[in-house]
Simulated assay, not measured.
Amino acid sequence: MSFEFVIFLLAGAALGGFINGLAGFGTALFALGFWLQIMPPVQAVAIVVVMSVVSGLQGVWLVRRAMMSQRRRLARFLLPALPGIPLGVAALSVLSADVLKAVIAGFMLLYGGFFGFRAALPKFERPTPVGDMAVGFLGGVLGGAASLSGALPTMWCALRPWPKAEVRAVLQPFNVTVLGLTALTLAIQGTYDRETLIFIAVALPVTMISAQIGIAVFKRLNDDGFRRLVIAMMLVSGVMLLARVAL
């Protein structure tokens, strides 16, 4: 590994772990922006799903009480996601690095714009089980294809009058489960070779420490501060990644 390679690997691990600890999602959005510069898409996604699961487990423990009180709500998202995972993994094998980077940059800008104008969007007060299941299925596909399982569920949950703990009680276990199964699928396909395991061993400690920092920040933010920080990080990172793709 060259010095530049190590810097990109650790930078992606640090930012990905921090945003996962802070928001309960987004490891892929930040980590893949770096890792797709230095490794092929399948390898980058294989590493990021492991990072997402390991750092996400810390967040699951944080919202365990809210999660247990909302088991049915979580199931509406999670069960339809399961058949979407192998479809996404199949799509990953044909995606180029530039296409995947453009998709991730697009989601970052969509995230930032969505949350920036969320106050003007309609709110769903009543249960919407069909919508929940459709979003869960698409989250499974995106999780298998690009480790982006939390993208659509995050925006969908933002249209509900749920406090941040309840939102996270859906997103965190949903992401951990979908990405854990994605990692298992990739392992069965033989994706985790010796080189990939070495990269994981180097990145994992940085991800874990950064996730703890993100969790500490999450505990200190009110709902409005939490929203503003996520918006800013998504917009700035999306613009930077899109610029790198265009150049």
Rank of each mutant, 00 (worst) to 15 (best):
Phe199Asn: 11
Gly136Tyr: 09
Phe226Asn: 06
Gly26Asp: 11
Leu32Gln: 08
Val239Tyr: 00
Phe124Asp: 07
Leu78Met: 07
Gln189Asp: 12
Asn175Gln: 08
Ala232Trp: 13
Leu57Val: 08
Val60Asn: 05
Gly21Thr: 07
Gly26His: 07
Leu121Tyr: 15
Ala97His: 10
Ala169Leu: 04
Leu74Phe: 01
Phe3Ile: 13
Gly84Leu: 00
Val6Lys: 06
Met51Lys: 00
Gly225Cys: 07
Thr207Ile: 11
Val63Leu: 08
Ala13Gln: 03
Gly33Tyr: 00
Val170Ser: 07
Ser52Val: 04
Ala46Lys: 04
Pro161Lys: 00
Ala97Met: 06
Thr196Tyr: 04
Phe107Asn: 09
Arg72Leu: 15
Ala187Trp: 11
Val245Ser: 03
Arg118Glu: 15
Gly16Ile: 02
Ser93Gln: 13
Thr177Ile: 08
Met155Ser: 09
Ile104Asn: 00
Phe107Gln: 10
Phe34Ser: 02
Ile47Ser: 04
Lys219Gln: 15
Val50Asp: 05
Val94Thr: 15
Arg168Ser: 12
Ile188Lys: 15
Val45Gln: 01
Leu229Glu: 02
Thr154Cys: 06
Leu229Ala: 09
Ala97Asp: 13
Gln37His: 14
Pro83Ala: 10
Ala13Lys: 05
Pro80Val: 03
Ile188Leu: 15
Val60Thr: 10
Leu241Gln: 07
Thr177Ser: 14
Met208Trp: 12
Trp162Lys: 03
Ser149Ala: 15
Ala232Tyr: 13
Gly26Gln: 07
Pro122Phe: 04
Ile209His: 03
Val245Ile: 06
Gly190Cys: 01
Val94Cys: 09
Phe124Trp: 13
Val48Glu: 05
Leu221Asp: 06
Phe115Glu: 01
Gln172His: 09
Gly238Pro: 03
Gly106Lys: 00
Val135Asn: 02
Pro173Asp: 07
Gly131Trp: 08
Ile7Pro: 04
Ser96Tyr: 10
Asp132Thr: 05
Val167Gln: 12
Ala14Gly: 08
Phe226Lys: 01
Gln172Met: 10
Gly56Ser: 01
Thr177Tyr: 00
Phe77Thr: 02
Leu184Ile: 07
Leu171Gly: 00
Gln70His: 15
Val89Leu: 11
Ser147Ile: 03
Phe114Gly: 02
Phe18Glu: 00
Leu159Thr: 14
Ser69Asp: 14
Gly180Lys: 06
Leu79Asp: 09
Pro41Ala: 10
Val170Ile: 15
Gly150Met: 01
Val167Cys: 02
Met1Pro: 12
Leu79His: 08
Leu235Met: 12
Leu29Ala: 15
Thr185Met: 05
Ala14Ile: 05
Asp193Lys: 12
Trp156Leu: 06
Leu109Glu: 04
Leu79Val: 14
Thr154Val: 07
Ala75Lys: 01
Leu184Ser: 03
Gly144Ala: 04
Leu79Tyr: 03
Val206Cys: 02
Gly16Gln: 03
Leu171Cys: 06
Gly190Glu: 07
Pro127Ser: 14
Ile213Leu: 15
Ala203Leu: 01
Cys157His: 11
Ala243Arg: 14
Thr207Asn: 10
